[in-house]
């Protein structure tokens, strides 16, 4: 069944959705949306590095994303205006990455494939990397779930419970870098943050507990991946952006329903 490119693409999309959903919830709860953006944009620099050294994309992107995320984490709380700093870092990384890629004259690179993803070209090996990364991210978050949630709610409460919020922040940073590295093939660097935030935000109105929100976000993300790919096939539209469009439509639809039912109540 893995011979069919649509099957591989759908499985890749669902894999990314599963990793992005619980992580995306924390990104939303901790107001780290721009942080996710900065990490994702830095990934294009990782692409350039990987191509320069003629190695596979995954380790290069993972390394650069991790460095970017750690840099931002390190600078957090050291007196910088965070949104300005993140804006500088995110777009500089993107610009340097694009320029660096242009120097690679030997190879003709389809830049669009890295900016917006190339999910229809997902190979069996890619699928293994994506699902491996997804399982790792979900496992990491499940393992640290209670500690992450406590640290997110209140730092002192975490310390008093014998936890270290700084270590939990590192767990999220690592999970974010892995997610970026596996999602680049599916939605590209420009839309990774969308896969993190939109399903989580869409799930908010339907959930009464943090766990429910993460599960519903995973369902919304997987549905978006499936429906987006079908739509892309049907209307001959770019696959990555189509997935995000479906997620956005679900977000608006669910919010309208929630708004209606609140008014009715």
């Amino acid at each position: 069944m893995f011979d069919d490119f649509m099957t591989r693409a759908t499985l890749a999309g669902i894999g990314v959705a599963f990793a992005a959903a619980p992580l995306g919830c924390f990104v939303v709860w901790r107001r780290m949306a721009y942080f996710g953006d900065a990490t994702a944009h830095a990934a294009i620099l990782g692409v350039a590095l990987s191509l320069t050294f003629e190695m596979s994309i995954f380790p290069g992107v993972l390394a650069v994303a991790l460095i970017m995320a750690l840099t931002v984490t390190f600078l957090t709380g050291r007196g910088y205006a965070m949104d300005t700093l993140l804006g500088v870092l995110a777009h500089s990384a993107l610009a340097f990455g694009l320029v660096a890629v242009s120097f690679l004259s030997g190879i003709r690179i389809d830049l669009m494939a890295y900016l917006f993803g190339d999910i229809l070209a997902v190979s069996r090996t890619d699928l293994v990397v994506i699902w491996g990364g997804a399982v790792l991210v979900v496992g990491l978050i499940l393992w640290r779930w209670a500690a992450l949630l406590t640290s997110t709610l209140n730092e002192e409460l975490a310390y008093a419970s014998g936890l270290n919020p700084k270590r939990e922040q590192l767990v999220l940073t690592l999970a974010l870098a892995i997610t970026v590295a596996v999602a680049i093939k599916v939605v590209g660097v420009l839309l990774i943050a969308a896969m993190l935030i939109i399903p989580a935000a869409a799930a908010r109105g339907l959930a009464r507990t943090p766990e429910a929100m993460a599960l519903i976000a995973a369902a919304i993300g997987a549905l978006s991946a499936f429906a987006g790919l079908q739509g892309a096939y049907l209307f001959d539209t770019p696959a990555g952006p189509s997935i995000v469009c479906v997620a956005a439509v679900l977000f608006v639809g669910l919010n309208l329903i929630g708004w209606q039912s609140r008014r009715g109540a």
Binding site: V28, W29, R30, R31, A146, L149, T150, T152, L153, N154, E156, L157, A160, S161, A200, A201, R204, A207, R208, T209, P210, E211, A212, M213
Partner: peptide, 22 residues
């Protein structure tokens, strides 16, 4: 520990029961 002020972000749904089991 009872913290000074605990801000729960609007985006985080949590019942009292779930919070008690944090």
């Amino acid at each position: 520990y009872v913290p000074q002020r605990l801000h729960i972000d609007q985006t985080l749904p949590i019942t009292v029961e779930r919070f008690m089991r944090l």
